[in-house]
Design a protein around this nucleic acid. Sequence first.
DNA 1: TAAAAATACTCCATAGGTATTTTAT
DNA 2: ATAAAATACCTATGGAGTATTTTTA
Lengths: 304, 304
Amino acid sequence: MELRHLRYFIAVAEELHFGRAAIRLQISQPPLSQQIKQLETELGLLLFSRTRQRVDLTAAGKSFLKNAYSIMNLIDQACEEAKRVDRGESGQLILAFTGAIAFDLLPTILRAYQEVYPNISIILKQMTTAEQIKSFQKNAIHVGLVVMPVTSESLNIELLHEEPFIVVLPKTHHLAQQKGKINLANLVNERFIMTPRNSGEGYYDSIISLCQSAGFSPKKTQEAEELHTVVSFVASGMGIAILPSSIQFVKNDDIVYFPLQHNFQTYNTGVAWSKTEVSPVVHSFISFLRESIIPDCSRQILIN
Amino acid sequence: MELRHLRYFIAVAEELHFGRAAIRLQISQPPLSQQIKQLETELGLLLFSRTRQRVDLTAAGKSFLKNAYSIMNLIDQACEEAKRVDRGESGQLILAFTGAIAFDLLPTILRAYQEVYPNISIILKQMTTAEQIKSFQKNAIHVGLVVMPVTSESLNIELLHEEPFIVVLPKTHHLAQQKGKINLANLVNERFIMTPRNSGEGYYDSIISLCQSAGFSPKKTQEAEELHTVVSFVASGMGIAILPSSIQFVKNDDIVYFPLQHNFQTYNTGVAWSKTEVSPVVHSFISFLRESIIPDCSRQILIN
DNA sequence: TAAAAATACTCCATAGGTATTTTAT
DNA sequence: ATAAAATACCTATGGAGTATTTTTA
């Protein structure tokens, strides 16, 4: 059986007249008769009852017609769906992200993206930058939102969003009463709460380098995997932290935020994807970020 | 697009190797490459990513493969369903029946039939024999279970089931005390409750002829369309009735049943279908009745 | 370089055309 | 007698084969 047989069958079933069906199909009547007969022979039954006065569908023909329509529809759908997937408009996107962007950048991205690409189902996975790099090796994620800088032979990485660092102090801290910006040099004797370097070098190295530029090495105390855990530790009075400014979306009455004086270093979030990536969904997502998200992110989140 | 394209695509997608797929399809490799390229051109996208080391499905190819399987399955199902319909094993049967058989014969038929033909959906319509004959003219029913005899140019009619007549008396009737059979001649002065002749001649004429053979014409009183309504009228003391013995399945404490003396006439139920009927379901149903129901119906329902 | 897909061409099977017959009213 | 489908036969498109080239790891 070929689709030709189904197309011809549908035409005859709708016209109930071989001659008219042949005209509609732009072929002559005899080959149409032959093709229908071929189909009937293959099925081992008659699809039409032919008399001179009229051609009629048999019971089996009626059943077959219903299914023939379904088949034709399914074929159309299959073609359209393949085209959508090819254009990156349909499919699945496994997106990893670090906890730091869960409150502002990620929701902004998702909202804007799903509006343009409603047929893509995004599977979100929260993990540290280091975990994301491992996941890329296992092909477990398509795109990762990472803390920069990241160096990897096998990944493409582009800057997505930058924001200033801020100082987070417990409300009871002696510096918490002052107004304006805090000079980093004043924090030389503080205990710093940080994330472990092996869960992401970007943030860790930024803080170290910030302190180096102010002339000291930070004294480390408790480590926490996620930035909002760092905030909790500060709130409990275990130390202070320097964090990206969007951490202010985590509300906590026991802490206060301050901008940093003389700070030109930023907390940079990047987008990473495999250099061997071929999925159109991934490329359409990256293109979308370039066009719709990155330009907006010149707007930086500042303390008001 | 032709089904050939889908078959070839599935083979290549499963083998991920044009050469092996060609062997499986029993064609040589070049035409396979050509057909796949045709399909890709028609879809306007690549289904496979080809490198020397390996052929791989693209994202669009994966989507299309899933749908290609569905299409192939649907085609198989369409063929099988058409064959079942052609063999009369699947489809719809609109079956009309008279009220008299609703309690015994009809359930017996339905139970046995649905066991052998579970894929046929039976639509039941209760109507008098006369209504059934009209419905046949309107092509509104496929098969009718009628009270015989019925004469019709356009219908086939076969005897399905015969049962004796019995006398139904109100409990308070003066003959209700006796034992054994009742002699029809004793009913000469009774008022008979009957169905109107124009809702079915078979039953009406049988009763008239029974009485004629006993030497009298029955005095008629109230008429009722359905036999169980006749029973109700007898129960309320409005008269007596002669009814097919299966009416005993209608339980009523206010009446008593008696066999008839010297009675060789039976109440005959027949099966009717159009002489122009072509539906295999109808023919398989008639064959089923001939083979499974009619032989059993030598067993007649008698008063115990 | 070698394995595999693509290309070039050739051939023939068969879809489709033309002419005619059969069929049923 | 006639309208319509089936049959007979012919034509030619394009699917499939063989030989060869291109590709890329």
